[in-house]
Write a protein that binds this DNA or RNA. Structure first.
Lengths: 177, 177
DNA sequence: GGCGAACATATCAGGCAGATATATGGCTGG
DNA sequence: CCAGCCATATATCTGCCTGATATGTTCGCC
């Protein structure tokens, strides 16, 4: 599911500019969806070249031109086609967890601080997701956001319950050098 | 946390060839860690050029040469330095969830099948993680794998409990066209 | 008055995934 | 019995993507 398909999907809901699409990718769905300007703008250009979207430039006084993109019928078909493909495997990239794998190499105090910050971060995300769920958009969005909340909740609990495992390991290792 | 640092980290535990590193990335940690040959081999070459690892080629009869990499003291320092940096945000890329966002565009039967497959997939992952936890390596590894199990378990339960939300939406939408 | 954030688009370097190439030996199903 | 596939082992290439950087204006805050 590359950025082109993702943008096409967003445009099935509403017309938008590249900048607005980027804002969606920074919202409550950012854990699951993401794309940078460096991929969004080229993606939109290519979609337009393939006639899957149209682009109408609106001149704005004192602002750069705004380019509003709309999906075409051909674009809807192409998106449906992409959507019907078997989805690939999940990938949970987490630098925090990669770091935890080597917890025994870290100074115990540093490790504990890292975990504290992590727990705070999880709580913040949870709060944000709950806020987003309250104003809720479509059921589908609520479904996906709800899964995000579930995952963060479970992760938070696990962290609190099991941090001692890595922390005691780090203490042991630091005592040995 | 790029592939270079990841490889360096693996090499703090044990010497290995590029091929062996790839196998680690395909094991029970694959949800969190990943790297392809296309990034591992160049990463090892560069690490060797920077003298963070050494490389000793072992000729093998009837097999291509095996290049065994070992971390150097300089490499250990560099890895620790990378490990102490503040970890970046998690990113849970899931084509399945991206598809769920547009569940209303899918034929209801297709959607249900997708979710069924997904649930089966989660169960398979859970089983695999439980197996890996049983033979368990270091506490740190168990900690990370345990989090994986927790997340899959929570996701599984959420899916089973909430699938009707998207499924009824898809039914509604399909009735309207 | 200055600083940063929001608005809006665009490009570039470097990193990475996935496919492909090369070579060989062992296992399995037809 | 042999064709095809999988495991071992390294390497490269295409194309996509991230993160940084560039450009230029307006608004609000300190």
């Amino acid at each position: 599911m590359d950025v082109r398909v993702l943008c096409l999907g967003m445009l099935t809901r509403q017309e938008a500019t590249g900048y607005e699409l980027k804002k969606v990718f920074e919202g409550p769905l950012r854990l699951f969806l993401d794309a940078s300007f460096g991929s969004i703008y080229p993606a939109l250009n290519r979609l337009a070249a393939e006639e899957l979207v149209t682009c109408s430039a609106q001149a704005q006084a004192k602002r750069p031109d705004k380019k509003v993109y709309r999906i075409t019928p051909k674009g809807r078909l192409a998106f449906l086609d992409a959507l019907m493909r078997k989805p690939g495997a999940d990938r949970f990239r987490s630098e925090f967890l990669a770091t935890m794998l080597f917890a025994d190499l870290l100074p115990p105090r540093h490790l504990s601080q890292l975990i504290d910050e992590r727990i705070a971060e999880c709580r913040r995300e949870l709060g944000e997701l709950d806020g987003a769920l309250a104003v809720a958009a479509s059921p589908a969005e609520r479904f996906v956001q709800g899964l995000g909340r579930t995952i963060y909740g479970a992760a938070l609990e696990y962290l609190a319950d099991n941090r001692h495992v890595v922390e005691s390991e780090a203490l042991l290792a630091s005592g040995q050098n």
